[in-house]
Amino acid sequence: MRTYPLPRPWARPANLRTPAVGAVLLVLLLLLGQGRPLPLAEPQQKLSLRQVLAHLEPYRREAVVREFLALKASAEILTGRPGARAVGRLLRLELYNQSYGRPSAFDDPEAALAASRRWLEALGSLKRGSPPDTRDLPLALQHVLPHREAIRRAAQGLHFPSGVLAAIVDNEQYGGDKALGLSRGIRSLADGLAESLSESTGSAGLLARTLGLAQMSWEDALKQQPRLARFAAWPYPTFPQTELEARQALEDPAANLLLTASRLRGYFNAALGLPRDHTRYLAGHWLYYLGPAWHNWPTGAQQQATWPYAFHGFFKGLFYQALFATR
């Protein structure tokens, strides 16, 4: 089975700093687009789990199936039947992607199931009112919890679950903490230099196009005014009109979250086949996959890839939704 190299899971194409690297990534994404995208019909759902795992030895395949069913049962206790269906859908996608050489979070089924169990254990602790053990989970609680009220307001203002937005913030901040903080330090330096350039020249060019708590591009920020007006969700007297104003808004956590939530709501409406001006509240556990996946790698979300950002983002959404409900 032919496979293709993947971009680093925690780095979005929008974060690239040079045209040369951008060109390389464009070629890479074109190659990925010629791979095995999953159409909306989701052919992996037509296969039984044992068919998806046909390449495994029988004893190992049966052990994986048993653990898969046990995890779904646990998820149903914790999140109800709709949540269990979403957990099962994610795991089926991950196992399918592993089997067919597509982007996946893990190299083998057992690792994916073990990670899922750890997430459900942490979720179970929250549901029981006990402090969850998160030591081995890819979480950036120290960066998310100080902004939980702003996250709630932004998500509620755009009418979707706050866990989705919290998962995106966590993914971005967890990625920034990697390499002993080197990534975060370089990003902060680039953001400061970009703002200085935009003040002096009117534009920072290709430098630091995304910034702030949820790492949103200033170009996308400037496009959010009509949607935020429809939702009556922008509390400030004026809306950014220039690159510099957009950068300054994105450096403010509350404004950054509102702009990110607006962009995300636009994607949800499109992905779910809703009118552009649809404003009713959206619900459903699969939003916890769609939101973080699309925010990080739109092509991967369209192809229903399960790279680490998307896989863990789903469980982070469940986790933060429950955590915010207890505080």
Rank of each mutant, 00 (worst) to 15 (best):
Q303C: 05
H295L: 01
V164P: 01
A194N: 08
R2W: 08
L69Q: 13
Q98K: 00
W297Y: 13
S99I: 02
F239I: 03
V164M: 13
R184T: 01
A86N: 08
G192E: 14
E243L: 11
H278L: 01
T279E: 15
R12A: 15
L272G: 01
F106W: 08
G317H: 06
A20K: 01
T210I: 02
L145I: 15
P58Q: 04
Q215L: 01
R89I: 03
P253H: 13
S200Q: 13
L250A: 13
S217N: 08
H278Y: 09
T242A: 02
L95N: 00
P292L: 12
G192C: 05
A229L: 15
G181I: 09
R12Q: 07
F314A: 14
E243W: 09
A305L: 06
W307C: 09
F311E: 13
N256K: 03
D136R: 14
E199K: 11
G33A: 15
E94K: 04
E76L: 10
W307I: 11
Q44A: 03
R36A: 13
P19L: 12
L197N: 04
S262M: 08
R118L: 15
S200H: 13
L259Q: 00
P138Y: 09
A86V: 13
A204S: 15
Y4L: 15
P237R: 12
Q142P: 03
S188P: 02
G157C: 05
G212L: 12
A179T: 02
Q225I: 05
E67P: 00
S162M: 03
W10I: 09
G317C: 10
W218I: 03
E62H: 14
P9N: 11
V52T: 04
P132D: 07
P131N: 05
R92L: 09
L28R: 14
W234M: 09
K72I: 14
A204R: 09
P9H: 15
A249T: 00
P58S: 00
D133M: 07
P109G: 01
T3V: 12
Q34V: 10
T210N: 10
F68Q: 01
G185E: 02
A20Y: 04
E195Y: 03
P9K: 10
L71Y: 05
K46Q: 11
Y96P: 01
P58G: 01
S74I: 06
L323R: 08
A270K: 14
D108A: 10
L6M: 12
E121W: 08
A221W: 08
K178M: 10
L197R: 03
H147G: 05
A301N: 03
Y100P: 01
A293W: 04
W286T: 04
Y320M: 07
K223V: 03
T279C: 14
P226F: 13
E199D: 11
G163C: 07
K127D: 00
Q302T: 12
W234E: 11
E243T: 06
R227F: 04
V24R: 04
G35R: 08
L53A: 04
L287D: 07
G163W: 13
L91Q: 02
A229C: 09
Y281G: 00
P37K: 07
Y59Q: 14
A293Y: 07
N269E: 06
A122T: 11
Y174C: 02
A301W: 07
R153F: 06
